Amino acid sequence: MKLKRYLQVTKPGIIFGNLISTVGGFLLASQGRLDWTLLLATVAGLSLVVASGCAINNCIDRDIDARMARTQKRVLVTGDMSPKAALAHGFVLGLAGFATLAIWTNVLALCCALFGFLIYVGVYSLYMKRKSVYGTLVGSLSGAVPPVAGYCAASGRFDSGAAILLLMFCLWQMPHSYAIAIFRFKDYEAAKIPVLPVVKGISEAKQQIVLYILAFAVATLLLVFYGYAGYGYLAVACATSLWWLKMALSGYKESTDDRVWARQVFFFSIITVTALSVMMAVDGQVPAHIGWML
């Protein structure tokens, strides 16, 4: 079906993952004063922007996708959709998404979405992904935008809470992405994408995964320290972060199958970020005072 192709090119799984974190950021900032119209507009607008970025990314990456086993059946590689059609689809989605945010949310949410889009499409997809081992770090900025945009849409400000979310989700992206690069090592190697495991080896990637999970664990506690979340959130943050760290450290065992281990780290990263997004939504608090804001 033609409609199915237009859906597939937007990477629905990525859209859904971003939707969860967007709602988490929005409800954290709402503090029980939920505006359903604003929430729906924020989710719809950001989902359309993310879909647009993914469609355009598929156009840019079609040569890479043809060399990777897991992406060889994408519609632009198989020829089921033309690059021109995918690009036009991406532009229409982007215009609809940015218009939705501009009309029904606020300038900060719109600027967050625009920042994430430009980083993902312009900096990461067009250059950093192909040219630098630091492409993952740059890409993590765009991946951290949805919860921040959700927060800014609800609060109307960029304050210490938004900054903590940006830090948290940037740090989370790194072990998540490195784990993918390990269990998809042959794909990245075949496509000549300079991710850390391919450039510096799996041992270095394992070390970076542990360090980033440690940094992420500390960052999650900042929401409690600054009064944005309560003890329920704290319990979940500690439990998930420590279990994720334990899982990462198990990669140093001599009997470890690196691909199996990396898949486990990857899947638990999704559980971790989903659990935290839910707890931000249900256990958010009004801080006694906000340190700074824009």
Results as ranks from 00 to 15, higher is better:
L294G: 11
R259W: 09
A190K: 04
A102H: 08
Q207G: 15
A154M: 06
N106Y: 07
F185I: 08
L118F: 09
I193S: 03
I119S: 10
C59L: 02
S21A: 14
L40G: 14
L276F: 12
F98H: 06
V199F: 01
S125E: 00
R157L: 14
I182P: 00
F266T: 01
G25A: 04
A29V: 11
V92D: 03
K4D: 15
A205N: 05
I164R: 06
V199M: 07
D159L: 10
R184Y: 13
L234P: 01
T274A: 05
H176A: 13
L93Y: 06
G230L: 04
L95D: 06
R62V: 01
Q173N: 14
A113R: 10
L87G: 15
A154T: 09
R263F: 06
V236A: 08
T105E: 02
Y120H: 07
F169L: 13
A44E: 02
F26C: 04
G232P: 04
A219P: 04
V195F: 03
G53C: 07
V50W: 00
K186I: 02
T256I: 14
Y231V: 15
S203N: 13
A144F: 11
L27F: 09
P175A: 07
V218H: 13
L137T: 12
F16S: 15
V107R: 15
C152Q: 05
A275F: 09
C238K: 03
G116K: 03
F98E: 02
L211S: 10
A41Y: 08
G291W: 15
S21C: 11
G284W: 07
V260C: 13
L276V: 15
E204I: 08
Y212M: 06
A217K: 06
S82I: 03
A66E: 10
F268S: 09
L110D: 00
Q285T: 14
V198P: 00
G150M: 06
T220V: 09
A113D: 12
M247I: 14
Y151P: 00
L242W: 09
Y212Q: 06
I193A: 05
V107M: 15
K253C: 05
F267E: 10
V148L: 03
M81G: 02
C54D: 07
A229E: 02
K253S: 11
P194C: 06
W243V: 13
G232V: 08
C59A: 03
A163L: 14
T37V: 13
V107C: 12
G53E: 00
L276Y: 09
P83D: 01
D65C: 01
K4Y: 15
F268A: 03
W292T: 06
L38G: 07
S277T: 05
Y151G: 03
V145M: 12
A248V: 08
G13L: 11
P197E: 09
G143D: 05
T256P: 12
F158I: 09
S82H: 08
G230Q: 04
I56V: 07
E204T: 13
G90D: 00
S250W: 11
G201F: 08
Q208D: 14
T272N: 15
V49L: 11
A153L: 05
D258C: 11
P83Q: 00
